[in-house]
Design a protein around this nucleic acid. Structure first.
Lengths: 348, 348
DNA sequence: TACCATATTGCATTCGCATTCATTCACGAC
DNA sequence: GTCGTGAATGAATGCGAATGCAATATGGTA
């Protein structure tokens, strides 16, 4: 009864050869069929428990791992999610990417990172995205990509936009309710007695900016406050925040400034205190948006509207993890609600 | 002579079908062989220029793209580089990852991100890394992974460690000369007349910490300065920096503190000024390491040792991009030299 | 005992492209 | 005009796992 089983001789010697054991080889060693090996590694496949165990045990011994590439080809499913990013300078994005990629990994999905450099040929860069047959695409870039480019790049593949809403584009969008958040900031200013307020845009054409701007200005008007001025920083950066803040307070009297995101606000905050000669919050209040880690640092203690990163990740993973096709058939726009975080830049 | 060419009819109708055109189909439409199509897309392949052009032109028309998965399987080369990361909180890493992934993309390599969560089963998480047959692995994690785990995960695959040096592990390591950098900081302190100095470690067992600590302490001794105290912050974070700074100045008189990295230093800086009641640099000087973007912010203006990110990226891409096997055969330890950046936290 | 339903297993094929091998063709040299 | 040389092309095979289908085994039933 005892079959002759070839020993896993080639396990350690082939450091140079770099050819891993294949399912067929393993099968031969065990005297079973390659199908059996494949089934042993496929949950729910039709295979008897003892055989599966025998195979898995032996596989572990000789350190066999199914070749994912071959599997992709035959299943036409890669278990890879393409993540398109363009701005890692704003800490909000690394934080999001970190949690997202971990959550994906937890359910067996890998993240292929597409880092879109501004000012380069997008289509060329995204060609790779199309070739790799990723199961779905998650776009985290708040800027840069036009809807058209996106459609081209994802080419009928399930896609989700995070932090960016484009209608009529056949993609699901997930974003926090920017408008309501900005509204809440306006109300908060109002409650603290700041009547003359200003708004600093990041990139004025981005959807996040438009929504935040709209929400803020609308509520400001409703509450009878005065919108003293608006500035367009031109980019979502610390330096831009500094410049915008100084410009805002030049000449005019302002009680409070709402910056389109935290990075701008932090830059503005430093500039106001150090170059503008203002005390914050005594002379002027400041608020941002996102609630990045730095906002909570004691030095900044920035009032902001917190994006529900965990919720975003949860929803994205849910959508991407299950029946991905559904993303295509029923693209939907999902609004998740963030939370106003009152800190010291708007009061004591 | 004019052959009947089938029209690219299936181009727009199959949004639901999701099956892209194959090389064989394209070949049939054009009346050529599948080999020809493959060759048309393979630089340097043996194919006449006119035929190649005809194929490429038609391919562009019907929006054909070679399936990368199939290509991987037959070439047993994925053009994918695995990037293992564990800490995206320290801005140094996102900055590095961003430039690295862009540089890789520029030469046609994609980045598969493996985000290692601390305190989880590493081997399980890295199983995926092994299955995906990445061409090479770049490990950017300064912490967490033991040499043994690494070897297992990369399994004879070319691997490069960035910012971490492990000897006798059959992998190339690239790091800036931490020891010299720390030395330079010590000298800088000395020149500015700070004689009583302190060192704050991040994670004491990491190689970066050991090297920086060694370089600093050694030079301090050589120059006859006094090492007043050392603290181990326990992690490379802003908060840890705050705590460590306050502990350092408790009771003792210190002229200057060198923090193992910028994030710690920035935390320490804020704490010294706001809770410690110190003026920096008048009462106490502060220096960090890495030169993250924040260090240059006017508010911090932190003296630090700048890591040569561009050089690191260049070298890594060079190694990974060319003959990857060489990485295995001749693992080497490469030290790139950074640069002391003198800013206001060590003098005016 | 004979027979059908179900559970296991192996065989052969498929996924889409790269590549080897053989064939054909064109051009020069002798 | 013949043979040699190299380029261009197509047919066929391989990469490694998944899977439809057929074959076999198992168990229960009449």
């Amino acid at each position: 009864m005892a079959k002759e089983i070839s020993k896993p001789q080639a396990t350690s010697a082939d450091t140079g050869g770099r050819r891993a054991t294949t399912a067929r080889e393993l099968a031969k060693m065990l005297g079973v069929s390659q199908s059996a090996v494949s089934r042993a590694f496929t949950p729910g496949a039709s295979i008897a428990a003892p055989l599966r165990e025998r195979i898995l045990k032996f596989a572990a011994e000789i350190d066999y791992q199914p070749n994912a590439i071959a599997s992709m080809l035959s299943k036409s499913r890669t278990n890879i999610i393409g993540i398109v990013v363009s701005d890692m300078r704003n800490p909000f994005y690394p934080a999001l990417i970190e949690r997202l990629s971990r959550a994906l990994q937890r359910i067996g999905l890998q993240s292929l990172l597409f880092n879109i450099a501004p000012g380069t040929n997008l289509e060329e860069q995204l060609t790779a995205l199309r070739r790799y047959n990723v199961d779905a695409v998650i776009v985290i870039s708040a800027t840069i990509l036009s809807g058209q480019t996106l459609s081209w790049a994802t080419e009928g593949r399930p896609a989700i936009l995070i932090n960016r809403v484009i209608e009529d584009i056949n993609m699901s969008c997930i974003a926090c309710n920017n408008s309501e958040g900005a509204s809440a900031i306006a109300e908060h200013f109002y409650e603290r007695g700041h009547k003359r307020v200003a708004y600093v845009a990041g990139l004025s054409h981005t959807t996040t900016n438009r929504e935040r701007q709209y929400g803020f200005i609308t509520r400001v008007a409703e509450l009878g406050m005065t919108l003293t001025s608006q500035a367009d920083a031109g980019e979502y950066s610390y330096e831009a925040g500094r410049r915008a803040a100084l410009e805002i307070i030049k000449g005019k009297s302002v009680d409070a400034i709402f910056f389109a995101n935290d990075l701008l606000a932090i830059g503005g905050l430093d500039a106001l205190r150090e170059e503008g000669g203002c005390r914050v919050p005594e002379d002027i209040a400041v608020a941002g948006f996102d609630d990045i880690a730095m906002a909570a640092w004691p030095h900044y203690n920035l009032t902001t509207f917190s994006q529900p990163i965990d919720d975003i990740v949860r929803v994205v993973v849910e959508k991407v993890g299950s029946n991905t096709m559904q993303l295509l058939e029923q693209p939907e726009i999902i609004r998740l609600s963030g939370e106003l975080v009152k800190r010291k830049t708007t009061g004591l």
